[in-house]
Design a protein around this nucleic acid. Structure first.
Lengths: 346, 346
DNA sequence: TTTTCATCAGTAAACGTTTTCCGGAATTAT
DNA sequence: ATAATTCCGGAAAACGTTTACTGATGAAAA
């Protein structure tokens, strides 16, 4: 592990000043062919690469952007990262990322530390509005994703209200009458989904049952399942907070002898890739996660470039219904609930 | 976006020298109570946070570690990241990460850039040995994961040979006689799996068919499926490069009328969480991805601490067979191949 | 009391770059 | 040929820290 050559070494070897080398590297000034050749040779011989930290110190730019996500094990977020990463790379930027789930408590400290190392931040963790102010205080461009931010703060997300509404329409059209939402406690930030669904059902004169899930993961879905399955007045359709919850839910539902969609329809939100491969394939709403990441990053770069769009505000991506096999048409006066033997063949 | 206060501002406001402030912050020297109080007050009033870049410049430490992974959409890798992240956080380090798939071609440049910003690197992308040397040349501690590195280079991985061997044993015990491996072209780095399987079969006097898959993703598995399914001498069991490939494979196999495991057994490698929820649930080998990340990071920190273990070499994690429903016992003289109507109920 | 030593605080040099300014040489215009 | 302009290259300050090294102060030892 020998020491890295510095710009000074290059200058010495090439017999020029360090300023000259610097300007050559950044092609910020032209030089005579002889000089350029010497510098180039020195650089190659020494295998010199400039130290990005030192550069950052003086330019104030780091060449990297940060992404904070809630849980890297959720494909929804990995897709966001994938999208962000792509456009960051296109702009010649690196990605630093933070998985906040490991450290919910110190989320803002973590973000503050991160913010010092990057030129901008994408925060894709449903963060309470009070904290958003604080993050803005870090003095770096930020775009929030996942939920609408207060006015004036750039943010982007799926239209969760529309998504939930869409699901509601589908379910009532299919003849469901006892629809449940499996989501977070009222205080937690999934109001939009909740409202979209309940508004829709209300418009149809239908009630909405509510069940609670502890978190957004598969095991949370598994744990929540029995509380809805084991009721005598159990719903004939349950829309889950997200696909992860839905997958967990379906698995234990099946193991408890409730077959889906015959006994109960289940729908998720996010359209994670694995939803196609569960049994039955999961009906869901596509949230364009990858595009979300891309657009968020583009928004961020516009800010970094100082090109603050006049219409700085929240951007909604249009949700798209993905009809698959976890939802089925209900015969309206459904009374007998024999375990069905035959499965629809796709 | 007002300017960040510097240590100089704090010193001025507290009426002391910047050296004093610095030493106070790093608690590298004690001061009289009066001075400490003044500094503390100034820091809080200005909301001062020290600039990690400047610190890094002089200390040579960055406080972050880098992880390079092949594809963030593969749960195997996200688990690795999860594990690494946890222990990095425990050590007070941040994680920078790079998804190399987007830029296979410039992988080493990307890594070089990354290496300047971190104190150490975990490279979890099956990288050819020539490149490893180069990465070592960056002068930062590195641990490779995913495949054994040449002697002297710390690395950690599952024992892929043992894993494949294990799978082979299972399959022949279940009565399979025409076993295929769906993996990469011979030049690509999955020799261990290949060898483990073929050694096992050879010991039983059985042949091994080989099929090729383009990459490690679900869609690669989907695309590769038909080439093995549509042969007249199709295998009665196929072991896939990983779970992702297996999932893709199973999906199109089903859609082509081959039912699993009745017509054909399928097994993956990795034990990604979603393997439990496919239909049928995927038989696989657990590679302890999360633990892999943890151990890799621990190894890295030992290097960073300068505590180079004497037995610097490759660490193997023990694989564990996860028997699920995508493999079934074969009746030996199996001849009729009617499309079966009934499914085993779990 | 005087000497000896910790203890506390400050000065200034680094770290590896970029960038502003400046002067000389070479080129062009007069 | 001289003046005006462009082009090329260097000197040095700056970025925000950390860390020797240096004094000055006070307390403990003689």
């Amino acid at each position: 592990m020998k020491k890295k050559p510095t710009i000074r070494d290059v200058a010495a070897k090439a017999g020029v000043s360090i300023a000259t080398v610097s300007k050559f590297i950044n092609s910020t000034q032209r030089f005579t062919a002889a000089v350029e050749r010497k510098i180039q040779a020195a650089i190659e011989e020494l295998e010199y690469h400039s130290n990005p930290l030192a550069r950052s110190m003086i330019t104030g730019k780091t060449g990297s952007v940060g992404v904070a996500i809630l849980d890297i094990c959720n494909p929804h977020f990995t897709n966001i990262v994938k999208g962000s990463n792509r456009v960051a790379l296109e702009h010649g930027y690196n990605l630093l990322f933070v998985d906040t789930e490991e450290s919910q408590a110190h989320e803002d400290e973590l973000l503050e530390a991160l913010s010092r190392r990057v030129d901008g931040l994408i925060v894709s963790t449903r963060m309470p509005e009070e904290h958003m102010e604080k993050v803005l205080g870090f003095g770096k461009p930020v775009v929030f994703s996942g939920r609408p931010a207060p006015a004036g703060i750039p943010s982007i997300s799926i239209d969760a209200y529309a998504a939930a509404h869409m699901i509601g329409e589908l379910l009532v059209k299919q003849g469901h009458r006892n629809i449940a939402y499996l989501g977070f406690a009222p205080a937690r930030p999934d109001k939009e989904r909740m409202r979209g669904l309940s508004d829709c059902l209300e418009a149809h004169g239908l009630p909405l049952m509510r069940f609670e899930v502890r978190g957004p993961t598969i095991v949370d879905g598994e744990q929540a399942c029995s509380s809805v399955i084991l009721r005598k007045d159990k719903p004939d359709a349950v829309v889950c907070y997200n696909d992860m919850v839905a997958i967990g839910f379906m698995a234990v539902a099946k193991s408890l002898g409730v077959s889906i969609p015959e006994d109960m329809s289940v729908v998720g939100i996010d359209n994670i890739p694995f939803g196609r491969f569960t049994s039955p394939a999961l009906t869901t709403v596509d949230t364009q996660s990858e595009r979300l990441g891309e657009e968020a990053m583009r928004l961020l770069f516009r800010q970094i470039a100082g090109d603050n769009p006049p219409d700085i505000g929240h951007i909604f991506l249009e949700p798209r219904l993905m009809m698959r096999d976890s939802t089925a048409v209900r015969a309206l006066p459904q009374r007998e609930s024999a375990t069905p033997r035959l499965r629809k063949r796709a």
